[in-house]
Simulated scan of single mutants.
Amino acid sequence: MKIIQVTDLHLVTPGETLCGLDPLARLQACIADINQNHSDAELVIFTGDLSETGEDVTYRALANELAKLVPPFRLMLGNHDNRIAFLNVFGTARSEDGFVHGVEDTAEGRLVMLDTLLPGKPEGRLDDVRMHWLQARLEEAKDRPVFLFSHHPPFPIHMPLLDRMGIIEADALYALLQRHGNVRHIFAGHAHRPIAGSWRGIPVSVLRGTNHQSALDFSPDRIAVTHEPPAYAVIFIDCNGVIAHFHDFLDQSAAYR
């Protein structure tokens, strides 16, 4: 199974820029590249920070571009998003409890997409309602493999400022995942960095956004914005493992055959 992860679009009002870049143009290039090279993907998952401002106009712009995307897609929310404005445009994404979380059952296992948005705060939250929802979805999966998607990483990446903006209930989340016992991978966004490793035995990965990035800076009290290349992830999942390729979709380097 091939799926695509795209994260941290940070859309602003069309025609405006952010960090000296045009987020909408970056998204358009990303979608065009996916359509050209990965139209066979089973799913494209956008892991949050769809908008920079949380304004309706940014979600309407996103809807216009998603109409051009060939594979099916799922949308998640990040700390820059506004749940109400998002649902004004993408109302069908709402679950019964009002959050934007969901599952996708595939031949290779269950994909679980979390809503970790805590309005007005950069960190992520999994309150009792969302934890109970996740517990129910894991219990439904029984012994099937589960692949978790979260905007906020629940694990430390050893960049102190960003680590203070993770999921508040990370320990409780891990305890829940451990009880299920078959969580094969956690895919996250938020950090704007290409990162791979494991968290208490669970493989994890993070990737760059489609607009600006975070500098590789391990200082305790700062993070700088960079113009490192934007990327999306091409993820292959089967019974033998998970492989994630980070693709710099604007890279124009010559390819020699």
Rank of each mutant, 00 (worst) to 15 (best):
M1Y: 12
K2P: 13
I3V: 15
I4N: 11
H10E: 10
P14Y: 06
P14M: 08
E16T: 06
C19L: 00
D22R: 01
A25R: 12
C30M: 06
C30I: 09
I31F: 12
A32R: 15
A32T: 05
D33R: 00
I34M: 11
N35F: 00
N35R: 03
S39A: 15
I45L: 12
I45A: 10
L50M: 02
S51M: 07
S51V: 03
G54R: 01
E55W: 01
D56L: 14
V57I: 15
T58C: 11
Y59K: 02
R60T: 14
L62P: 05
A63R: 15
E65I: 05
L69W: 10
N79D: 12
D81R: 05
I84N: 06
F86Y: 14
L87N: 11
N88C: 06
V100G: 13
H101L: 05
G102Q: 02
V103I: 11
D105T: 15
T106R: 04
R110V: 11
M113P: 01
M113R: 06
D115K: 03
L117D: 13
L118Q: 09
G120N: 07
K121N: 07
P122Q: 02
G124P: 10
D127G: 12
R130H: 07
M131I: 02
H132R: 04
W133A: 05
W133Y: 03
L134K: 04
R137S: 02
E139G: 02
A141W: 01
R144W: 03
P145S: 13
S150H: 08
H151Y: 08
P153D: 15
P154W: 04
I157W: 02
H158C: 10
P160V: 00
P160L: 00
L161M: 07
D163A: 06
D163G: 13
R164D: 00
M165D: 12
I167A: 04
I167P: 03
I168N: 09
D171W: 02
L173G: 12
L177E: 00
Q178S: 14
Q178E: 12
R179A: 14
R179T: 12
H180P: 02
R184Q: 15
H185G: 14
A188I: 10
R193K: 14
P194F: 01
A196I: 00
G197A: 09
S198L: 05
W199G: 15
R200G: 03
G201A: 09
P203A: 03
P203Y: 14
V204E: 14
V206T: 10
L207I: 14
R208V: 06
G209K: 05
G209C: 13
G209V: 08
T210G: 03
N211T: 15
Q213D: 11
L216N: 08
L216Q: 09
P220L: 03
D221A: 01
R222P: 11
I223T: 06
V225H: 03
P229G: 11
P229N: 09
P229Q: 11
A231D: 04
A231V: 10
A231T: 15
Y232K: 09
Y232W: 05
F236A: 08
D238G: 09
C239K: 03
V242K: 02
I243V: 14
I243K: 00
A244M: 04
F246V: 15
H247K: 05
A254I: 08
A255G: 08
A255K: 01
Y256S: 07
